[in-house]
Design a protein around this nucleic acid. Sequence first.
DNA 1: AATATATGAACGGTCGTTCGTTCATTTAGA
DNA 2: TCTAAATGAACGAACGACCGTTCATATATT
Lengths: 195, 195
Amino acid sequence: MAEKTKPAAHPRRLQIVEAALACFLEAGYHQTGVRDIARRAGISLGNLYNHFSGKEAVLAEIARLEADELRPFCTILTEGRDPHATLRRFVSDYAAYASRPENAVLGLEILSEAIRAPRIAALFSDNRAALVTALADLLARGSKSGAFRPFDTPKETARLLLDVIEGRALRTLLEEKPQAGKDALWSFVEGAVGV
Amino acid sequence: MAEKTKPAAHPRRLQIVEAALACFLEAGYHQTGVRDIARRAGISLGNLYNHFSGKEAVLAEIARLEADELRPFCTILTEGRDPHATLRRFVSDYAAYASRPENAVLGLEILSEAIRAPRIAALFSDNRAALVTALADLLARGSKSGAFRPFDTPKETARLLLDVIEGRALRTLLEEKPQAGKDALWSFVEGAVGV
DNA sequence: AATATATGAACGGTCGTTCGTTCATTTAGA
DNA sequence: TCTAAATGAACGAACGACCGTTCATATATT
């Protein structure tokens, strides 16, 4: 018998989530109607409410699934040996991930909603907390080994590092350019944490 | 006769804009109805359409006015003598400005809308372009004088600098903390541009 | 008299959600 | 084994509220 502890066990739920994600990316959360989601998922309006308590619950599920995509980056950070090389790898990978338009738009939609929906905000914060802690640990390790400068507040520095990557991702949403400046990002970060 | 080149000449327009701004901050752009704006401005629904062509036009006006608030920061950047001190002043002032919740939320609402409304996106980009140019010039001057490291692409570095300040501003929206880490921000930036 | 400003009813839609109902499948009782 | 009860997925009409916008009309200003 298959494990069913996760709330996404029912295949219909995934179907709905995928449809909702496509709708939210295309039109935005508030511009998307529940009917749009149901139609795209190929189910009836009423049936959607058999699987989710409402529109916000669908967004919450999406936010929860997004968290899973962040876990590999935590792994990179915690399992890396050389702090400098590990950071470089993380910055490169995470910047590539965050800058993909789907991820940037989704993050923006979730953040926008999180401001006024505490339930979404809680999910958002939890997701980020693990990443911040892992990154702060890496910075602290690097400080001790001399790879990085000393930090008064490694956690805040870790947050700033994520800020620049994510801020850049949002900014590039409005630029027509494909995606340049990867070198500039690394030089910027390297300087910010360097000895 | 008063100058009327600006579209905000009519006092009623400002009244509407202020009401709309309050609504957008409280509830968000899409959750705010035109009736909400009219009620808050103390005018009738129909009359609002005598002064604005529609809801989006009100948001566009707000975005335009926000641009004016950015100009003083350009002045700081272009008129500063010592690059290092000027940058420090700019980072401190701009971070304080961007992190004020009203400004952070407004920026988020405008950015969200800009993704799918080209008219808003154009305003957004214009506002930012001036700031980027002024900051890139400062960086280039600082490189030449030895205050900063050399930059392959000063403009991209300028953008990254704004990214970290604005990304931090958005992030702090979800934190209950008052506002800490100002020192960490400056250390981060100083390292990123330092020799 | 002419023009600018103001009003709110009305329009055609869309919103998120609830509801009564159908129906295939599973479980329980005999 | 046959039947009866229970389950829950599925449907789409219906609900009341709200949406952005238009318009006929009234009031005030010049």
